[in-house]
């Protein structure tokens, strides 16, 4: 999918996507020539069709996790999977600690997908040198990474 600024005859550039949490999807594009911005708004059904293909509008921002589609789409058994935390990414890098509030929030994530979600937040924090994961960090990650329902 490409968006064309007709006035400038220039391909518009993808800016960001948003998942408002109501099952819909939004993405914004801007014309690099005139600066005009537009939003593409998809309804629940259009969003779901894209999700069912396990693809991301605007490209993937995250590494694909094992069984990501199944874990985010199926109501599975809470203790079916035992996620082994990955080791810290490199020398001098440590895993961030979880604040009590962030742990409480994580506990509300369905058990079947919780280990995967925890890893995504931990990787996000580690890659940015964040030492403690708080609800604010989770919100930021959710927004930047487009984590619907996580």
């Amino acid at each position: 999918m490409k968006f064309l600024c007709i006035d400038c005859d220039t391909q518009m550039a993808f800016e960001e996507r948003q998942l408002p949490g109501d099952g819909t999807f939004a993405a914004s594009f801007a014309c690099p020539s005139c600066g005009r911005r537009i939003a593409m708004l998809a309804n629940e059904m259009e969003t779901q069709l894209v999700n069912a293909m396990d693809v991301r509008i605007g490209g993937r921002t995250l590494r694909e996790e094992p069984m990501e589609l199944i874990r985010t789409s199926v109501s599975g058994r809470a203790d079916a999977l035992d996620d082994i935390p990955s080791t810290a990414g490199g020398a001098g890098r440590v895993r961030a600690a979880w604040s009590r509030e962030s742990e409480e929030r994580l506990a509300r994530v369905p058990g079947f997908v919780r280990g995967m979600v925890k890893k995504i937040y931990a990787d996000y924090a580690e890659e940015r040198g964040i030492v403690q994961i708080t609800p604010e960090v989770m919100d930021r990650a959710r927004s930047e990474l487009g984590l619907e329902g996580m």
Binding site: E44, M45, L49, M53, L69, I70, S73, S75
Partner: peptide
């Protein structure tokens, strides 16, 4: 049980099942 919205499930269930097979 797929956790996605219930409306018009027949449209996308096949896609999800194929995706699940791919992941398995």
């Amino acid at each position: 049980s797929w956790r996605q919205p219930a409306g018009e499930r027949f449209v996308w269930r096949g896609l999800l099942e194929t995706g699940a097979l791919r992941e398995l």
